[in-house]
């Protein structure tokens, strides 16, 4: 059994970048319920937030959830506690990207797709996933 060690600095950093209060979340799971991509995530949104609440830095940074968030804001619209979940996900991405850990390498994108996809798809993905 591992001891619970709350990484308060990490919590503070998430709260600062996202401008959200983690204690606002009461873990009702509604974000997960409505997330169009929760099925593809190893840890769905509410669990990522739970990791954050407990200051489990490694669990947060290792989870794929934030990379699958498309910032569609359905969770933010329906959250009964007014938590802007996409901002929390952005904070995780920001921490990664500022440490120069991107999700994708532009040079590896399929050339055919590059030619076919609309620029705004690529620009959006680059802004969310590259540094």
């Amino acid at each position: 059994m591992s001891k619970l060690l709350i990484d308060k600095d990490f919590k503070r950093r998430i709260e600062e970048i996202s401008d959200q209060k983690l204690s606002d979340c009461y873990q009702c799971g509604r974000c997960t319920a409505g997330c169009p991509f929760a099925n593809f995530m190893d840890a769905p949104p509410n669990q990522v937030i739970r990791f954050m609440q407990l200051g489990l830095k490694d669990d947060v940074l290792d989870s794929q959830g934030p990379w699958l968030c498309a910032a569609c804001l359905v969770c933010q619209t329906r959250c009964p506690r007014g938590v802007d979940i996409p901002r929390l996900m952005e904070a995780v991405r920001a921490i990664h990207l500022r440490a120069k850990e991107g999700l994708i390498d532009v040079s590896e994108i399929d050339k055919e797709f590059l030619l076919d996809a609309p620029p705004l798809a690529l620009m959006s993905a680059f802004s969310k996933y590259t540094y």
Partner: peptide
């Protein structure tokens, strides 16, 4: 009509965008 189509996930997680 108000749900997400998958947006820019089409670049990184095309399956997710396709399903949505």
């Amino acid at each position: 009509k108000v749900e997400c189509c998958g947006s820019y996930l089409v670049v990184t997680s095309p399956d997710a965008a396709l399903e949505a």
